[in-house]
Simulated scan of single mutants.
Amino acid sequence: MTKPEEKMDPEQEYFEKRAEAELELAQSATHPGVVKAHYELAGLYLDIVHGEPEHSESDAGVEEQGEGVETGED
């Protein structure tokens, strides 16, 4: 995943190997829920390796409270 000339720190290397393992597990799994879980874990590990900000499911696609909600009040 990284260029051979780039030296990763041991922690990043660990998480990259975990991501690769999770991808392999996802590809060999047969139950859709298991496949999804392995891909999600792989994504989280890759976020760590590449320095992406952490996010939770509650952050994804959630609008600000009150935004887009009609209350009927004027």
Score class of each variant (00 low, 15 high):
12 Q>N: 06
42 A>F: 00
2 T>R: 02
37 A>V: 08
60 A>T: 11
37 A>C: 03
35 V>I: 15
13 E>Q: 11
61 G>Y: 05
58 S>D: 09
24 E>Q: 07
41 L>Y: 10
64 E>H: 09
50 H>Q: 04
65 Q>H: 07
34 V>Q: 12
28 S>K: 13
38 H>D: 00
61 G>A: 11
14 Y>K: 10
29 A>I: 10
63 E>K: 12
34 V>L: 12
27 Q>C: 01
30 T>I: 11
40 E>P: 05
70 E>C: 02
44 L>Y: 09
44 L>V: 07
10 P>A: 15
9 D>K: 06
3 K>G: 02
27 Q>I: 01
66 G>R: 00
20 E>M: 12
63 E>T: 05
20 E>H: 08
38 H>M: 07
21 A>L: 14
36 K>L: 08
59 D>M: 14
9 D>Q: 04
36 K>V: 02
44 L>H: 13
63 E>L: 15
46 L>Q: 11
51 G>D: 02
22 E>S: 12
71 T>Y: 06
71 T>K: 05
67 E>L: 13
5 E>K: 07
18 R>I: 15
34 V>F: 03
27 Q>V: 03
61 G>L: 15
48 I>V: 13
13 E>I: 04
61 G>E: 02
68 G>W: 00
28 S>R: 10
36 K>A: 12
57 E>A: 12
66 G>M: 12
14 Y>M: 14
53 P>G: 04
17 K>E: 14
51 G>M: 01
65 Q>L: 15
60 A>S: 03
44 L>N: 14
68 G>F: 00
12 Q>A: 07
16 E>G: 01
43 G>N: 03
68 G>V: 02
74 D>W: 08
55 H>M: 13
30 T>R: 04
13 E>T: 10
35 V>Y: 03
37 A>E: 09
11 E>F: 10
40 E>V: 14
34 V>M: 10
